[in-house]
Design a protein around this nucleic acid. Structure first.
Length: 422
RNA sequence: GUGGACGUAGCUCAGUGGUAGAGCACCGCGUUGUGGCCGCGGCGGUCGUGGGUUCAAUCCCCAUCGUCCACCCCA
């Protein structure tokens, strides 16, 4: 027997039961983004490997061991994008869109990381990413956060999300702090676990968000980045906080919120939930004022965030969200009537274009067709019988309510449906 | 990459060293033109795969693949 080919690990199919939540999420998000003046970018999934090594930081795990990298036919090193910002920045530079000050864009699509799959973590996962370029004012930081809060509200998720906020300062401040923290951690090295000792050298900031509860007390004592910011950075951060407060956004200042990607600076934030197990970050982002220059273009500040669609969908699924149900399920007494049924159904479609109108293509006994009509959860089963159709009539059976079966003329069926589709 | 749990019908799961069962789903009959409820019948599994032990393995052992959860990492 021929072996059945399965999907690739960590790259699951999304089935109809779930896709309706995806559409709910995306339709809500896309129209919200539009209302704030963000425009869509469609970006490739494959990029030069160097784009990511340069952007994300070559010592991060993402670049070191999680990228899907391979040689193109001509030998060029290509990678499936592990995140969206690098490609968005590349596009903005290359297209010249960066020359329009204050460009605001979004994109949606799959990202790829070769990680061990677990709840909320996949090898192909989808993000909605949002980026704003050329704006250094803190109002844009606040706008992005306020906008995302509005999205949670529209999706009914506001109760399950909490906002964490921090500032990483500028490059110099961060480097100075990094040294300070490294020295401090070295003094307490004997209390650190194995992972933290390793990160102490490679990426000391990340020691701070260790999940090991045994380190919690110790890390509380560590020097705080926020207290080592210069006046300008501090003022920027304070202003973001004030704008959020003015707009009724609750947040938690979190000294231990550092980002996994090297390009972040100043404001960083994360929307988290405790309803999804270990992978609770729903949406994360921050400023990357040095990234554009890093790619050789005129220095231009930037800020953005990305939300994990699979994680949001998982939260949405705990809510009741009814699929649209059919208005009509049309059945025929015998196969020869199906052609007429089809035409009649098309006339109905002209009249109620947004309703779901179904024709039974499978046939069989009327009983079998009626069972399918029932299962479809249709409001009305329209029955085309030979004799009555010859008289120009059809039967309409009410499937979701009590009441006698109706006899209507085929001609008036579209209007009748329009009246019922309110 | 590390650790743990688990892989038996489409789905959720029972089960035994002597080649398998339930519920749900699906199909049919009970009305040769009518659903839902009920009754009856039916379809459906090389018990993940490959080795080993045994007279005999779905059950024991090993390996392998896969799934899930956690670590790591991060959306």
């Amino acid at each position: 027997m021929t072996e059945i080919i399965r999907n690739i690990r960590g790259m699951p199919d999304v089935l109809p039961e779930q896709t309706r939540y995806w559409r709910w999420l995306e339709q809500t998000a896309f129209s919200l983004l539009q209302s704030y003046g963000y425009e869509e970018l469609r970006l490739p999934v494959l990029e030069s490997t160097e784009l990511f090594t340069r952007s994300i930081g070559s010592v991060t795990d993402i670049v070191e061991k999680e990228m899907y990298t391979f040689a193109d036919r001509n030998g060029d090193s290509l990678s499936l994008r592990p995140e969206g910002t690098a490609g968005a920045v590349r596009c903005m530079i290359q297209s010249g869109l960066l020359h329009t000050p204050g460009a605001k864009v979004w994109y949606q699509g799959p990202m790829f990381r070769h990680e061990r799959p677990q709840r909320g973590r996949l090898r192909q996962f989808n993000q909605i990413g949002v980026e704003a370029f050329g704006i250094s004012e803190p109002t844009i930081d606040a706008e992005l956060i306020i906008m995302s809060q509005r999205l949670w509200q529209q999706l009914g998720l506001a109760e399950q999300t909490v906002l964490k906020l921090n500032s990483l300062g500028n490059r110099e401040e961060r480097q100075q702090y990094r040294q300070l923290l490294q020295d401090w951690l070295q003094k307490h090295q004997q209390h650190l676990d194995e992972d933290s000792q390793r990160r102490l050298l490679s990426n000391p900031l990340r020691v701070l968000d260790s999940k090991n509860p045994a380190l919690s007390d110790l890390l509380q004592e560590a020097p705080k980045l926020l207290q080592h910011l210069g006046p300008a950075s501090r003022a920027h951060y304070d202003e973001v906080c004030e704008l959020l407060t003015d707009n009724g956004i609750d947040f938690v200042q979190d000294d231990r919120l550092v980002r996994g990607l090297d390009y972040y600076s100043h404001t960083v934030f994360e929307w988290q939930t405790d309803a999804l197990g270990a992978q609770g970050t729903l949406c994360a982002g921050g400023r990357y004022d040095d990234l554009v220059a890093l790619h050789g273009a005129k220095p231009t500040p930037g800020i953005g965030f990305a939300m994990g669609e699979e994680r949001l969908v998982e939260l949405l699924q705990s809510q009741a969200h009814q699929a649209q149900q059919p208005l009509v399920y049309m059945v025929v007494q015998e196969p020869s009537l199906r052609q007429a049924a089809m035409q009649l159904l098309e006339h109905c479609r002209d009249r109620v274009p947004t309703a779901i109108l179904l024709l039974d293509h499978l046939g069989g006994s009327l009983k079998a067709q009626m069972k399918r009509a029932n299962r479809s959860q249709t409001s009305y089963a329209v029955i085309i019988g030979a004799e009555e159709y010859a008289r120009g009539e059809v039967s309409v059976r009410l499937m979701q309510q009590q009441g006698p079966q109706l006899q209507l003329s085929a001609q008036e069926l579209p209007d009748w449906l329009a009246g019922r589709n309110a």
